[in-house]
Every structure is written in C-alpha cells, then in structure tokens.
Design a protein around this nucleic acid. Structure first.
Lengths: 108, 108
DNA sequence: TTTGATTATCGCAATATTACGATTTATATT
DNA sequence: AATATAAATCGTAATATTGCGATAATCAAA
C-alpha cells in the first residue's frame, strides 16, 4: 500500500520516525552536516557542494524544513538555511533516550 | 526516479542514512523498543503487540536484519529476535558524532 | 505420516520517494 | 520597464516502501 498507518502508533513513535527520516537519505545527511559545520548556508552553495541538481536539493531542503530540523531565512534572491537548534536538540535527546532503552545482555 | 544515488555519496553518509532508516518507520521504532526493553523476543509476541499483520511485521524484521541492528536465532518453529548490541552501539556512536558536529550559534 | 504451530515468502495494489528538466516566482539591478 | 539571479515549484518518470491475504516452508508432536 505504501501508506504508513501512523494513526495506530504512538505520537512518540511517529516523532522518532520523522526525526530519523531527516537522516535517512545520504543527501540529507550531507546537507545537515554542511549546515552543522557551517560550510554552507546559502542554498546555492549547498547545490555546489552536492552532486545533485538544484531542483533535487531544494526538494530535500523542503523536507528537512517540514520536519523542522532546519529553517530558512529569505534574503532575496537568496535563502540562507541553517540548523534549527531547538529541533536538533530534540532529536539528540530523543535518540539518546531510544538508545538508552537497551537492557543487556540480549537474550540471543 | 526513486533511486538514491548512493554511489555519489561517502560511505559514511550512506551508513548513517541506512542506520537512520532502521528508525524511520514507527513500526520499526516500536519493534526496536520492544526488543531493547526485552518485552518481546519471539516473533509471534511482536505480532501480538503490534497493530500490523504477521506478514508486515515479518517484512520489517527482515529490513532490520538486513541493516544489521537485530539478529534472529532460529528455534523452529519459532524465531527469537534480539538487538545486535554491536550495531546498536555503532548507531549510538554514529548519531552521537553527527549531533556533536553542530557549531553554534547558527547563522540565521 | 499427518497434523499443528510458527515464520517467511509471494503476489499484488497503492502510495511514497527520488531525481531532474523546464518553468515560475521574487527581488535587485540596470 | 527590462534584465539578471537565485530558489521554489511543476510535471513527469522510475524505483522504493508499506501493507496484507494467501501460500509455502520448517520442524515438533501426535
């Protein structure tokens, strides 16, 4: 079906999945790292750094913005993108909790 | 196209993306949490806990196994699944490094 | 050897994602 | 007003993902 049944899962499960999606494509990992390391900020600079077309980069940026982990400041004709620190921290904390949940040793 | 151009990204970027994929669906988040908390281990128990069909759960388990974050011990007719601690730690460390990369403050 | 229990796989359908060329939008500059 | 620049969006194509019923596979037990 290709349609995730989000309504049958908890809000937390859905949010973890959404935050994970931000990192679930190598292009988005690259974009987030460039922004986190401040090697690029203007959208055009990102396009130069990435082996993808302008349209494709813009689409990944849109998805990251939808998730909330980045924000963009319009400064026409340019747009300056950067990490949304609050959501970055939310993700960091969320994954921290997920990983902490492991009770050792595993049974098999 | 729907075809990720993995060959143009670094191995690290691709691995981060793959590990993130393990958590990029609420059902897989739920499965991983159940296994991490040891609330379930036998596949059938997971099916009972999740609002999805046996076939769908089996498919998610297969994907998690492909990524390596879980392993299964066959004990016919049952299969006992559990977290692969080494990969769990790899993921924990990988995401830790990703999140550490943020240089503050953001420029916009 | 048949039955039962458990899990994997197949086949299918529907939606989602990825990618890019072409176009549009929005603004500054001339 | 016309032009140039940068980014978003549109349209399209192809592949991926999600989900499930049905079936197959696997082994224990009767």
């Amino acid at each position: 079906m290709g349609l995730t049944k989000t309504e049958v899962f908890t809000e937390q499960e859905n949010r973890v999945a959404e935050l994970a999606k931000a990192f679930a494509h190598p292009a988005r990992v690259a974009i987030l790292r460039l922004l986190a390391e401040k090697k690029a900020c203007i959208c055009g600079d990102l396009v130069d750094e990435l082996p993808l077309s302008q349209a494709t980069v813009s689409q990944h940026l849109k998805e990251l913005k939808r998730i909330g982990i980045i924000k963009g400041e319009i400064n026409p004709p340019r747009v300056c993108y950067c990490i949304n620190e609050a959501v970055w921290e939310e993700a960091q904390q969320t994954f921290g909790l997920v990983f902490q949940a492991l009770k050792r040793p595993s049974c098999c």
